[in-house]
Nucleic acid binder design. Structure first.
Lengths: 123, 123
DNA sequence: CTGTATCCATGATGATACTG
DNA sequence: CAGTATCATCATGGATACAG
C-alpha cells in the first residue's frame, strides 16, 4: 500500500523528483486542498464548504492520494455521527514554502495579465 | 492574443495566484520544459532530444502556452534550414526557485517510498 | 456526516502523417 | 528543422445517487 503505483499508460513520465511532486499537485484541486490544510486540521465537510465547487468524489480522491503519499494524515473522530479530520503531516508542511513561492509568481502572472488588459483597452 | 483565455467548462477553477501558476505547470511536461530551459537557450529539436518521449505536438503546445504567458521567449534563427530558439524570460526564471523547492520535496517523497519498499522487503 | 459508485463531458498526450 | 492536423486513448472532474 501506501505506494506510488505507476499505472499511467499515457504520459510515460520522466521519473524525477520534480515530476514526482507535480504528479501530486497535478489536479485542479490538490494544491488548494493543501492550502486549506495549512492551518488547523479540517473535517471533510469543512473542506467541501471551503471549496464549494469541488465534488465529494474528487475531494475524496485527492485526500486519498495525499494520504497515501504521506503528506496528509487522516484521523477518525468517534463522534455521533462519526466524522473525519485531515491535517498536513510534517512532510506535507514542507510543501508550503514551495507553494508560497509558486503563488508569488502567480501573482505577478496575474498582474502582467491585467497590465496587458489595460494596454489593450487604452492603445 | 497573449492572454489567458478562460475556456474550461469542467473544473470551474478557484481563481487565485496559485491556481494561475499551476495551470501552467499542470501538464506532465511543462515543468520539465522549464527545467530544460534553466540553462542556455535551446532549439526545438534539442528539447525534443532531451525529452525523448514528448511528442512534437505537445512540446509545441507547451512552448506556446509558456510564451503566451510571458515565461518563455521564442527567437527565430535565420539559418538554413530555419530554426527556433527558446529561453526563459526573467519572469520565467522566477519560477526556478519554486521549482527547486518542489523538487526537494519530491526527493524526500522518493526517499520515503524507497524506505517503504525496504521495509516491505525485510519485514 | 463521510464517503463510494456510476455516467458522461472535457482535457492532455502519443503516434502518425504532412506542410513550410 | 520547425511545426501543425487528425485520431485514438487515458485521466480528471462534475452530477447524481447511494452506502456505512
Amino acid at each position: 500500500m501506501g505506494l506510488p503505483v505507476r499505472k499511467s499508460k499515457v504520459t510515460p513520465p520522466p521519473t524525477c523528483p520534480l515530476s514526482e511532486v507535480l504528479r501530486l499537485l497535478r489536479g485542479a484541486w490538490a494544491p488548494n486542498v493543501i492550502w486549506q490544510l495549512s492551518g488547523d486540521a479540517r473535517r471533510f465537510g469543512e473542506l467541501r464548504h471551503d471549496m464549494p465547487r469541488i465534488s465529494a468524489r474528487v475531494l475524496s480522491a485527492r485526500l486519498r492520494e495525499l494520504e497515501t503519499r504521506g503528506l496528509v494524515a487522516r484521523r477518525v473522530l468517534h463522534t455521533s455521527p462519526p466524522s473525519a479530520e485531515y491535517s498536513l503531516t510534517p512532510l506535507g508542511r514542507e510543501l508550503l514554502p514551495a507553494i508560497n513561492a509558486l503563488a508569488s509568481v502567480g501573482t505577478k502572472l496575474i498582474e502582467e495579465w491585467e497590465a496587458d488588459q489595460r494596454k489593450l483597452a487604452v492603445g
